[in-house]
Structures are given as C-alpha cells and as structure tokens.
Design a protein around this nucleic acid. Sequence first.
DNA 1: CCCGATCGACGAACCGGTTCGACACGATGT
DNA 2: ACATCGTGTCGAACCGGTTCGTCGATCGGG
Lengths: 360, 360
Amino acid sequence: MATIGDVARVAGVSRSTASYALSGKRSLSEEVRLRVAAAVEELGYTPNAGARALATSQTKTLGLLAQFLDDEFAPAMMQYFLGVSNTARGLGYDVLLVNEPDGPASLRRVLTSRMVDGVVLLNVAEHDTRLPVLRSAQQPGALVGLPADCSGVDVFDLDFHETGRHMVAHLHELGHRDLLLVNQPEHVLERGGAYVWRLQSAAEEEAAQRGVTLAAAFAPSTQPDVGRALHALLDAHPQVTGLLLNNEAAASALPSVLAERGLTSPDDVSVVGRYSREFARTFSLPFSAVESAPDQLGQLAVRQLVRRIEGTAAATPHVVHLIPPSLTDRGSTAAPRLPADRPRADRPHARRPPAGAHAP
Amino acid sequence: MATIGDVARVAGVSRSTASYALSGKRSLSEEVRLRVAAAVEELGYTPNAGARALATSQTKTLGLLAQFLDDEFAPAMMQYFLGVSNTARGLGYDVLLVNEPDGPASLRRVLTSRMVDGVVLLNVAEHDTRLPVLRSAQQPGALVGLPADCSGVDVFDLDFHETGRHMVAHLHELGHRDLLLVNQPEHVLERGGAYVWRLQSAAEEEAAQRGVTLAAAFAPSTQPDVGRALHALLDAHPQVTGLLLNNEAAASALPSVLAERGLTSPDDVSVVGRYSREFARTFSLPFSAVESAPDQLGQLAVRQLVRRIEGTAAATPHVVHLIPPSLTDRGSTAAPRLPADRPRADRPHARRPPAGAHAP
DNA sequence: CCCGATCGACGAACCGGTTCGACACGATGT
DNA sequence: ACATCGTGTCGAACCGGTTCGTCGATCGGG
C-alpha cells in the first residue's frame, strides 16, 4: 500500500512537498504539483486515515448513536439513519454506527478514543443518561429529540407541543367535538419519551380552550396487540368522531381495524396521524398526518454538528430547533357525520361488511 | 486528553512499560502493573484509536456497505444492520456505515484509506460492481447475497434454490395443484438480484417434477401499487389455490387484499412467504414463511470476516454458506378446498363476508 | 552591483501509540 | 567467587501523515 513517502520518491520531491502539493496549503510550482499528481495516480495513493487522524486530530467521522429498545418500532428508525448518513457524506464525513444497549458507556468509548469528531444522538429521552457523558466530552454533539436540559448541545426535534395543538385545532375546525388520542405505550413515556406527554398535554390544553372532549390512551407498539387495543378503544368511545395517532404501529394497524368494523375514513371517522411521508408510502397509510420529518431532522443535526466541528459555529450559542408541524393532507379528515345522518349514496368507497365482523 | 505518556509519568514508568502493562504482552511485576492501572483510572485514559491504528495496522472497525435503491423495501434492511452491528460489537469491532450511491468508489475509499479491517457487503448482486474492488484489496470481505463469482470472498445467503423447491413441495403435499409465485419487481432482477430467478427456476423445476401448474409474476415493491397488482393477479388466475410470496411488500399488502376479496387463508387460499420472523411480527403477517434470517446471516458474515481478519482462518478456503430454508408455520396453509366443497362448520376462525364485497 | 523580498522546496519534529533490542539486577548453579 | 540465566524495565525506532522553521535561488529595486 502506497504511502506519501512513496509518492514523494516517485515524484522526486520531499515528503513535506508532496503533502503540500496535495493539501495546497503552501504555494508551489505548477511543475511539482503535476509531478506529484502523476505519482499519486500511478501508485493509486490514498492517505492513511489513522495517520491523518493522528496528525490532525480530526477523523472526519461522526458517531451515530442509536438505541434500539425492545418495543421500538424499528422501521421508523431507518429514515433517521439515512438522513444522517447521506448528509454526513455530502459534507465529507463518514458515519460510525453505534448501537449498544449501554448507551453512556459506548458513547464514552467512541468519544475518548477519538474515533469521531462529533456525535448525533437519536431517540433522546427526557433525562437521557448519555447527556452527562456528552457534556463532559471535548467533541460537540447534536441531539434528535428534546431532553429536559438542553445546555451544551444542539437540539432538533419536531415541535410536539404545536403538533398536539394543531391536530386538535384541525379537527375542531372541521366540526369535531369528540376526539381520541392514541399514544405510544406507557413505558415509552416512563423511559423518558417526553414527546408523548408534550403532544398530549398540548392537545388537552387546546381541546379545553375550544371546548372539545379529548380522551387519551396508551396503545401497544407491536402487532397484533395494537389492533386489539384499537378495537377496545373504539368500543369504549363510540361517540368519538376524530382520531389522533401518535403511534406508528397504531397507524399501520388502523386500516384493517377500520375495515373489520366496517368503517371508512373520513366518512365515519376522521383520522390524523404523526409519521413520515416515507412511512406512509411504505405502508400505504391513507391518513393525513403531521410530517415527522426524520430525514430533515437528521440533516439539520448533522449540518449544525459539522458547523461546530469545523469552528464555523464554535462560539455560537447552542440552538434548540423545533420544526413546526406541517400536515400532509391525504384526505382522511372531513366534517363529522351529523348524529342523524343517513347513509349517503355518494360515497364511492363505502363498504358495509356485516356488523360484528370483528373479533370480540 | 490523557496519553500513554501521561499514564507513564504518573505511574513513574516508561511509556513502553505502560504499554506492556496494558497489553500484557510481556511479563512485569505486579507492583508496576497496579501502579499503571491506578494511573489509568486516575487520568481516565483511553487509547487514541488513530494512533493505535497507525501502530498496529488494525482499526478494529468493519465497513458495512449497504446500498439503498429507490425501489428497495427499506424496513427489511434494518435487521441486517442489527445483526451485523451486534455481532461485530460482541467481537470487539465497531461498524462504519457506508451507503453511498456509488458503491465501488466508496468501497475503494474505505479500504485504501484503511479505515476498516474488513467489509460486509449487503444486497450483493449477481455481477456486483463492488466485487472487483474488493478482490483487489488487502482486507477480507464477506458477502450477504450470492453473486455469480464467489472467488476470493466468503459468501452467506439463504438457499433460494432449496427455498423454491421447498415451498412448492410443501403446497403440493397438501394437495395443491395450481400455484402462483409473486416475485420482486422485474428491475430487481435486472439489477442483478439473481435470487429472484434462483427461487423461481427451482420452484418451476420442482413443480414440473411434481406435475403442478406454477404461474410466476413480478409485482411492485411499493404500496399501493403492489395491492393493485395482487388483485389483478388473483383475477387473472382464479383457479390458483396456493400462493408463494418472494416479495416483502406483497406479503404486507396481501392481508388487506384478501380481506377486500372476501377470502381467508388457509380456507380459500394457502399462502407461504419468504421473510423474517421480525418482519412478520412487526407487520403482524399471518402467513407461514421461509425464514430469511437476516440477523443470522449478518452474524455468520461477521464471524467469518473476523476469523479472517484475525488470521484464524487466513489460509482457509473461502466458504459459500447457503443456509437451508426453514418454514415457520403460522397456519396459513392447508389442504385446498375441494371444487364442490361446502362451507365447513369445523373451522374456528373462518369468516364469511358477503360475496362480491371486494372492489371490481 | 548589491541587498532584500519573495517564492519554492526541504528537513525535522510531532501526533500517540507499539514493539524490538538491550540492559540492569537478583537468583541460581558449580 | 564467577559465569549464567531469567525477569523486569527502559530507550529508541517506527507507523504515515502534517506543519513549522529555514534556506537557497530568483527577481526587482535602489
């Protein structure tokens, strides 16, 4: 494997000259520059990443800290990976994928061994145990997910407060007065997924202000449990005309649940979810939803992280960037049917399977 | 940040002694060993990865080369990531995630810059353009996916030939005589996903031997197109009683397609798929399926790769390991209904939606 | 014509580890 | 008492880059 010494020898210059020819950090004659370039070409030279890291204290690598939890709905995570990875590569950085159960320990390891110039933390919890480690490190970090204490880090997340308000406002303005919010399972909240609570409390606040009834419930994040839970919830709240989903698994289970109950959306029930465009596409989810924008969040996090690493934003105050909710309309919301509404003939997709078709 | 020089000074020994104390490669007195350990503890020392890589020519990092293609069904990829990442970490290796559109170029980059000790290639095509790059590299590579030419690399894949035969045999033995195989979209095959063809030709061979009629068709890998395609296929092949799915998207769309047509499985149609346990769990897929074992494949690939890196298997001939198909029975296959079969009362889960409930 | 500025190339030191060879010291054998 | 051996430690070189200080050559100006 060719080293810069080999390049220098072939080009007939010193190692330092070869280095300067490649980096362009000092002026040198056109002739030497070309000789070095030719030698590089001839030998197929590529700088040794370890040696460069040692000399420059820069690895051009970012750490991507995912944590997979048992009840996680894994498919949603992939989008964050891609957003981070693609953006990083575009800025000249590679990505070290770290997903160990022991988050703080693995974070400490990659930081102190200087394998990475900075880290992106995914799935950040309210009191994330990785944060103290990150704060005491030399390298900067960007979070995807809003923790209680944002000091010393850059934070990016969907604005779940506004999302909750927006969902309620949207349905209220269409005329709905009885809403049901389907949350992530309770242990997601216990584990620090405060976004569940933020969305719910904002929704409740907005509902109270508008005089709307809002029930909220946890639902499992695994199939087929979540389907059963949805049936139970719909049984328990027969008057509900508007559904808010803050649970990807529930969103992907709802179409068949509705079909089993002989309901269609938006005719019988209006539904608004919270998931990504890509997620909707993959599972053909027909519900209007607040875009959770994983690719955008990953991109924002990496951009800011790189700005800090490269000193452009070194002294800048840390940012907490909550992207405003934007509702992608897929036609699953409409004015509620009037209490005495008779079945309409003008609904092309309406199907009326026999009552009681769903499991008890 | 503490270096080994700091540790040596605090412990009152030379740098080399400190190094030996940590690596244990030479014997030294218990007393010195303890003094060094204390200094490490006191300073919170962690070796600098770049320096170590430079000195030892080992990075303790594996490259994970994914390629995401537009029409890829992304959720299935995650399981490979996890299998590779978890196994690697267990063996003391980190994972560099590389997913650039230009596979050969990025592979060359990570190999020649010595960022990794070896690579795992996912999603390997019949004539994968990354293979020549890998063969001319110093570092070993392990593939997940069977290419035309396996020389110089270790290969792991599901045995798609046996899988095709097994699926047909299974349905034939239950009494089915008219089968339909739903493939990945045609461009997956064109792009080099020869496993599609391997499964199909084996299935056809087996079908011919057993005197079974087998139709095969491509289907899209995106929703909702695949649902429409399934409807069209079922319309075109009304006599089919057994369905073989080699397309994850089709598998996840089939339950609602069947529901829309008022069919149930296995009463009206027997279905056997090819996807992972985890995939089935996430999407609550009720079909018996040949386990595609992404986690196992990732694990096998990494284990073999590490064996080669560490010299344990340096001179060993390269392996081509095709894991035999294993059918996970989820109860979606049974004897076909006889042509003049009357509705049976002894089927506990049978539901009989009104005929003609499905869209035209 | 000589001096000083400028340009271009070089040598050496350094980043932080690992490892080989040498050496000092105490224990053992004769 | 002395040669021998083994054990524990150290110094120095090396991995492959980057970068600072320096120096010689060239050119322009006084």
